[in-house]
Structures are given as C-alpha cells and as structure tokens.
C-alpha cells in the first residue's frame, strides 16, 4: 500500500480541495485519513456513515485534590506555565495552560496533586462511497493535535484491508501535527499557490519533509493568478529535484463545488481536467497505475 499525505505550508492553498478530488477520482481501492484534525473537512464532502466514535484522551493534566491541599502555593511557584491559580482561596489547575509536566505533583508536600488524562477530542471511523475514512475532532483549546493525528493514522491503517492507497489530508503548518502526518508515509504532495509567501512557505515545508524518507511532489493551485511567481515555484522545484505533478487553474467551478460541499471533480471544468492530469502523473510516479 502506498501512503500519500497531502500537505501545505499554510492553510487555504486548496489542500483539502485537491485531497478530495484525488480521493474522488483515484480509481484504486483506498482508505482516507483526515489528519487536519483542527479543521476536519473531508467528512463534509463525502457524507460518511459513522462506524465508531471513541473518546480521545490525549493530554495528561494535573489535578489538585481540594481535600488534601493545604494552600501553600509551592506548586504555583514551581509551575513554569502559570497553570496553577488561586481562586477564592482554592488552588486550581487551569487545564488550558497545563503542559502536563508533572512538576507540581513532585513538589507538593501533601501529595495532593495527581496527573489525569483529559478528554480532548473524538476519533471516528466511517464508511464513504470512496473508501473507509478515519477522522477526528479536537475540542477547542485542547493541545496535542499531533497525538490525535497519530491515532487517526492508526485507525486508517486498521481500516486499510485491501486498499492500495492510504490518502491523508494533512494539517497546515510545520509543527507536530504535520510531523505526525508525514512520518512513515511514502510520499507527500505539497499543494501551493503562487502567493507572495508561497516560496518561503514551500522552502520551510520541504526542509521539514527532507528529514523523512519521503518522495516529495508539488501541485500548484490557481497557478494562473500570478504566472511570474508560479514560474519561480517551478524553478525552485527543478533545482530541488521535485516533480511538479500538476498545475490547477483558477476556476469558478472550484468555488461552486466547495460552496456546495462536493469534490470539484464531480463535474467537468478546466480544474477537473487539471486534477485528472495531476492524478495520472502522480499515480504513475508512485507506481499505482
């Protein structure tokens, strides 16, 4: 099975649009993983039928037992994250600021503090007409989306029986959710668009991807909005030995499809033609066709 992650240095480059289109027209047995857990959008496009829902207990946070606490405040003195606060003479842990380091449990003279796993999201498995889907939802303000991504990947692998392709829609950025998405994949497709920050974002992302043993491909979305920047992106890719697997034009059909919650490839348009060509190039490079 080929594991392919669709990523983008910054959000809004059309990453999910490309991922949805590839999933729609891939034509090979596949399993989908929505690793953009901060903003999981694939389910909006493929009307999944939910199979399972699990609680995600990611982060450990400290909890102070008010019965045992004597109010000395030593824990707050040692907390580097300002997570222990005194409200009306009661010492409490603010879970949004707690990093889970457990220093407070160590310094508390009363042994009044323990670490507890906090429910900070949900993990789902679903069936769609384009293959099984593993996805998740992170509760607002909860950290550690990286671990949740790992869990989504794990579910996707368990749903992958008979699949030739694992297609993951990755998170924006280059932080730990991205690392969790691309570690252990065979290839990444970076979706970029010719904006002023495109090259800068692309270079940062390529630097990170190079640390993993993955094949890197680039797709340039809305390439015709700024042909000069597009050319610079292509020059950069050539210099770096990265295959530009496709270029997708600015097309109002994409806007309409996104508005209607459908993959753009459900109807014919210049963007659909470009996405089909992208699929053919990419899948041929990956040995899928």
């Amino acid at each position: 099975m080929i594991r392919l992650a669709i990523v983008s240095g910054k959000g809004g480059t059309g990453k999910t649009m490309v991922a949805a289109a590839l999933a729609d027209i891939s034509g090979v047995p596949q399993v989908l993983a929505d690793c953009d857990v901060d903003a999981a959008n694939l389910e909006l496009l493929f009307e999944p039928r939910r199979l399972t829902t699990e609680e995600f207990r990611g982060l450990e946070v400290a909890r102070i037992d008010p019965e045992q606490c004597r109010g000395c405040g030593i824990c707050a003195d040692h907390c580097r994250f300002g997570a222990i606060v005194c409200r009306d003479d009661v010492w409490e842990v603010d879970p949004l600021h707690c990093e889970g380091c457990a220093v407070c449990t160590y310094v508390c003279p009363m042994g009044a503090i323990s670490m507890e796993q906090r429910v900070c999201g949900e993990i789902y498995t679903s069936v769609t007409d384009r293959g099984n889907l593993a996805h998740a939802r992170l509760f607002p303000g909860s950290g550690n989306s990286g671990l949740l991504v790992t869990e989504v990947r794990k579910r996707a692998t368990s749903l992958a029986d008979g699949a030739d392709l694992l297609l993951a829609d990755g998170p924006p950025g280059i932080g730990c959710p991205l690392i969790a998405t691309i570690s252990g994949v065979d290839a990444v497709l970076i979706v970029t668009e010719p904006g002023v920050s495109a090259l800068h974002d692309l270079e940062r992302l390529v630097t990170v991807c190079r640390r993993f043993d993955v094949q890197i491909f680039v797709a340039i979305n809305r390439f015709d909005l700024a042909e000069d920047i597009c050319k610079r992106i292509e020059d950069y890719c050539e210099k770096e030995g990265i295959v530009v697997a496709g270029k997708i034009p600015f097309d109002s059909a994409v806007v309409d499809a996104v508005r209607n919650g459908r993959p753009v490839t459900r109807s014919d348009s210049p963007a659909t033609d470009a996405l089909r060509a992208l699929r053919d190039t990419l899948f041929a490079e990956l040995g899928l066709i």
Partner: peptide, 10 residues
C-alpha cells in the same frame, strides 16, 4: 493569530 483552535491560539 495562527489558524486553528489549538494552544497557540489560546
């Protein structure tokens, strides 16, 4: 702010 709803936004 950074996009998303995780710790950097908080």
């Amino acid at each position: 702010a950074s996009p998303g709803i995780a710790c950097p936004v908080i």
